[in-house]
Amino acid sequence: MVRERSVWGVSEAAGGVAALRREDVIRVLDGCYDPCCEERRISVVDMGLIEDVEICGGRVGIRMLLTSGWCPFAARLTETIRERVGGLPGVEAVEVEVVWDPVWSPERMSESAREKLRLPLERLLPLREARIGRGGRR
């Protein structure tokens, strides 16, 4: 008996051996950046945006979260992911689906991403002192 697996509506027999591995897709995704995070080199993987990767033969399905429903770069980001993952050998099609459950939260970020987004204390102290010097007024 040949079982069927699906990548979001596209079924394919699971009897063949897929040369494409999940690790290969994750490695490519680790080089994809939301334009807001590209300067700090925080990938979609480090931001915790990738919810699931499913491979079925040459088809790759990626479920992805957004940090906000108002993300102005969502279309650009999903297109970048399609292009980069689609460039892997053996990939015939890539589907990127934005999902809203679970909701993205900062806890999903890697420690590396948190560190890159942290404002160093030496930059915070002068701001604090300036505010205290003004009596707390802005």
Rank of each mutant, 00 (worst) to 15 (best):
R59H: 14
R21L: 06
E12H: 11
A130M: 02
E38I: 14
C37Y: 15
V44E: 05
L49P: 03
E111G: 07
R131Y: 13
R114Y: 03
L117W: 01
R128K: 10
V44L: 04
P89D: 00
R40C: 06
R137M: 14
S105Q: 09
S43Q: 02
L65Q: 15
V44I: 09
R59D: 13
L124D: 04
M47W: 02
E83D: 11
I50E: 01
A14G: 09
L20A: 00
E79S: 10
V53S: 04
I26S: 02
A130Q: 11
V60Y: 08
D24R: 02
V103K: 10
V53R: 03
E111W: 00
V25W: 00
E122Y: 11
W104T: 02
E97P: 05
V44F: 05
E97F: 09
L65V: 10
P102C: 07
R76W: 12
S11G: 07
T67C: 10
R63L: 13
R3F: 15
R21Q: 06
R84K: 11
R131V: 13
R5K: 13
I50C: 01
R108S: 04
L127R: 12
E51K: 09
A75T: 11
A93T: 06
I55Q: 05
S6P: 01
V45G: 00
E83H: 10
E122P: 06
L49F: 01
R59S: 11
R59I: 14
V17D: 15
R114V: 04
R59C: 12
G31W: 13
R76T: 12
V96G: 04
E51R: 12
S112N: 06
G57A: 06
I132T: 05
R40A: 15
P126Y: 03
V28N: 04
A74F: 10
D34F: 09
I26R: 01
S43D: 07
C32F: 08
T67Y: 09
G86Q: 08
G31A: 14
T67N: 08
S110V: 03
V44Y: 03
R82W: 08
R59Q: 09
A14D: 10
